[in-house]
């Protein structure tokens, strides 16, 4: 297993609750400086994995390293990690500022300015209001502010956009992108795959506690995974065009006057040449990446 070259590195990590296996022999790495989307349906083991990485629960078997240190020695790395797990959790009868002060003190930080943290997450105006009066979006933002208390190298965020309206989601997206620009590694789980697709450059996908994919976005959504969409100059040539692709072993479908050729994104130039050789001229030829959602369902179905 790689030791220090990844922000997170796990090998064969498993967690059982009684006889039920929640996480099954996970092996993946998360590179430093990446925004890693941790994707999977409810109950797939995302939160359990995050809890194990933060040493909130014990592993059943396997190994894990966070920022180069084994997860069995959380004292060695947790002072460089910020986290929001299972949603924000604060003392309801205290204000945002008071809550942040308490957690900063517990983290051994005396000079932390709660107001600057609140300003970072856009909560400066409501810092003195009691936590129980906050909207869901404000609670999520306070959760992120608390995760930033230690000015961490690695941020672990579990569903930070849960329950937010579109404006709130956009704000959190901008916040996370901004945090990543300062060199932090961000490990983020969400059900909103379209959101992760926009902000993440690395993905770890789970299903029923097992790993489906771990790697860069391009490997999942780009390259050979792109579809080719072609439109001939004359509609009558559509079937012939489909034949040209089919003869070369490519999967095709005709939708709305366009020929879709699956996973042929890298063959655009060649396909254009083949069409010309048959004297079919193209009005348009574009590539289309599958969405993360499409890819996720496709991979889920194949498993």
């Amino acid at each position: 297993m790689s030791d220090n070259s990844y922000a997170i590195s796990v090998e064969g990590l498993s967690k059982n609750y009684g006889t039920r296996r929640s996480v099954s022999a996970l092996t993946f790495n998360v590179p430093y400086g990446s925004i890693c989307g941790f994707v999977g349906p409810n109950g797939s083991g995302k939160t359990t994995t995050m809890r194990m990485l933060l040493s909130l629960i014990s592993k059943t078997s396997g190994e894990g390293r966070v920022l180069g240190s084994a997860i069995s020695e959380p004292m060695k790395y947790l002072d460089r990690v910020g986290a929001m797990i299972e949603g924000p959790a604060f003392y309801p009868s205290m204000s945002g500022v008071e809550n942040l002060k308490i957690f900063a003190r517990m983290g051994g930080l005396r000079g932390t300015d709660p107001n600057s943290l609140l300003a970072q997450v856009g909560l400066a105006q409501r810092g003195t209001s009691k936590y129980k009066t906050y909207s869901l979006g404000m609670k999520q933002r306070l959760g992120i502010a608390a995760a930033l208390i230690l000015d961490p190298e690695l941020l672990i965020l579990d569903e930070p956009t849960n329950g937010l309206d579109p404006n709130g989601i956009q704000e959190i997206r901008e916040l996370i992108t901004g945090l990543a620009q300062s060199g932090r590694t961000i490990f983020i789980s969400s059900h909103l795959l379209s959101e992760l697709e926009v902000i993440c450059d690395y993905f770890v996908m789970l299903k029923a506690g097992e790993l489906m994919y771990a790697g860069f976005k391009e490997g999942l959504l780009g390259g050979n995974n792109c579809d080719l969409i072609a439109k001939p100059e004359f509609g009558v040539d559509l079937a012939n065009l489909a034949n040209i692709a089919a003869l070369r072993g490519l999967d095709t479908s005709i939708r709305g006057g366009f020929l879709h050729i699956q996973r042929a994104g890298e063959l655009a130039a060649e396909f254009n040449r083949w069409a010309c050789e048959e004297e079919i001229y193209l009005q348009s030829l574009t590539t289309s990446s599958p969405s993360l959602e499409t890819k996720f369902f496709e991979m889920s179905a194949n498993q």
């Binding site: 909130l56 959790a89 003392y91 957690f103 983290g107």
Partner: peptide, 12 residues
Amino acid sequence: YGTLRNVLVLTP
């Protein structure tokens, strides 16, 4: 409140 997990991340 769930604050124990916040605390234990800060004070392992």
